[in-house]
Design a protein around this nucleic acid. Structure first.
Lengths: 117, 117
DNA sequence: AAATATACCTAAGTAATTTAGGTATTCAAA
DNA sequence: TTTGAATACCTAAATTACTTAGGTATATTT
């Protein structure tokens, strides 16, 4: 549904926050979690998700561990200390961005209330 | 500040809403309005703004009129009926997107309250 | 047995930017 | 008075983050 242009630039933020919440996840698990948490309104395509995970790793924000369950190979991702910091700042930045957008779009309402109350 | 990746896909939405509010504006005026309304947190670069305006026109969402003030040429943009509809749906879509993101990012708070209360 | 789900991956194409130019007029400052 | 900044428009190449469209392989369901 929103898997189009709206998501641009927010994919890393989503992954970082999910890993903050759940500790350790593998790629497929992340895609399923996002799908179910958003009632399928956000779908992370594999072509977007895997390159994003690889990039987070290249940036030193996550580290990986491959586990073999049965004969299936799962690549688990976990935040590094730098990743934990990045997660906080990315999420904060998202909400700041939304608040700023509300100045333009006339967001009547109490704002997103992030880090404010 | 946010002029980077966060803005992706939201530029048309911003322009449409501004024209909804103010009726008729020219390009430079739009860029200045966005800058001052957001305390310079959102800067629309000219390389992004002008192609966006041309695209909105190609899509039939705005129409243009060139006025000459002194010897300066200003190209005014105004919403078409289709543009007025698009403006409403784009803004609504933005806030729906934000609400969906809050499901993932743990947006504590009362949501953006858009079209809800 | 075949289809679906799980689980990973890459590469070509696309779209919306940024960056970096270009032209021309008006106004303020040195 | 001329230089710089602001006003006002524009385009093109490069960048970036996606989508689309493949590929491999195992496990489960029909």
């Amino acid at each position: 549904m929103f898997s189009n242009q709206l998501l641009k630039g927010h994919l890393q933020t989503i992954v970082l926050q999910l890993l903050t919440d759940r500790g350790r996840m593998y790629g497929y698990e992340i895609s399923q979690a996002v799908k179910s948490m958003t009632a399928e309104k956000i779908i992370l395509t594999e072509g977007a998700l895997y390159p994003t995970l690889h990039k987070l790793r290249a940036q030193g924000l996550v580290r990986t561990e491959v586990l073999v369950v049965g004969k299936r190979r799962r690549k688990y991702y976990e935040l590094t200390p730098a990743g934990r910091e990045a997660s906080v700042s990315r999420v904060r930045e998202f909400f700041e961005f939304v608040q700023t957008m509300q100045l333009l779009l006339g967001g009547r309402g109490k704002s997103t209330d992030h880090e404010l109350a």
